[in-house]
């Protein structure tokens, strides 16, 4: 039994063809044809990765994404109609880790999934504990504590934080973060970084509107400080 991918898509032909292509890549695929279906399936047996089409009848993709995110930090990939719509930002805010636009090549999806799973697993063991004021990061255990209390980060948020923490006080550009956290090249979508930074702040900052730890450096990028 390999890595299980739950694909949520209402169009049967797309669902079937994507399943065939993903199976060729070596994944185990479970299909859901509606939001309700997907939530039931996930509750029954959580998948390792979830692929959600935003345009779903009934419970829409954003809601499915939020519901799964409440219960799990599983990597979620959104499928949107267009890259330059607000759907992308809304999907990321609902908890998605990455997105693709339709029609995508299943090989590209596989590459994205591999990147998501790799970074979720690849924090070096034996990295020392890092402390930034009341912020405490233990990479080995995948644990972040704020004022002694554990913060629940998704794997992508955690990896983003560790990337910033590994370069304390240094400014990392959006391009660099895209490459190191998501595995994108120069033309990755900077909104991935922006939305994830915002999500991260709501979890580790006492006041997300006036961040103390993850600060924006105008025109350059982001940096972590104590």
């Amino acid at each position: 039994m390999g890595t299980r991918i739950l694909t949520v898509e209402d169009d049967e032909r797309i669902r079937t063809s994507v399943r065939l292509a993903l199976e060729d890549e070596g994944w185990t695929v479970e299909e859901a044809e509606s939001g309700e279906d997907a939530l039931n399936a996930f509750t029954r047996e959580p998948a390792d990765v979830v692929l959600i089409d935003i345009m779903l009848p009934g419970i829409d993709g954003f809601d499915v994404c939020r519901s799964i995110r409440q219960a799990s930090d599983v990597p979620i990939v959104m499928v949107t109609a267009r890259a330059d719509t607000h759907d992308v930002v809304a999907g990321l805010e609902a908890g998605a880790d990455d997105y693709l636009t339709k029609p995508f090549a299943p090989k590209e999806l596989s590459a994205r999934i591999r990147a998501l799973l790799r970074r979720a697993r690849s924090v070096d063991p034996g990295s020392p504990q890092m402390v930034f004021g009341d912020l405490e990061i233990i990479p080995e255990e995948g644990v972040v504590r704020v004022a002694g209390e554990e913060a629940h980060l998704t794997k992508t948020e955690f990896r983003l934080l560790v990337e910033l923490a590994s370069n304390p006080g240094r400014v990392l550009s959006r391009e660099v973060l895209l490459e190191r956290v998501w595995g994108y090249g120069y033309f990755g979508d900077g909104r991935l970084v922006d939305v994830h930074v915002r999500r991260l702040r709501t979890k580790i900052e006492p006041d997300a509107a006036n961040p103390r730890h993850v600060v924006t450096v105008r025109g350059l990028g982001y940096k972590l400080q104590s």
Partner: peptide
């Protein structure tokens, strides 16, 4: 989408 995925298979 169906065509792209199918042709990849």
């Amino acid at each position: 989408m169906t065509l792209s995925a199918s042709v990849e298979v």
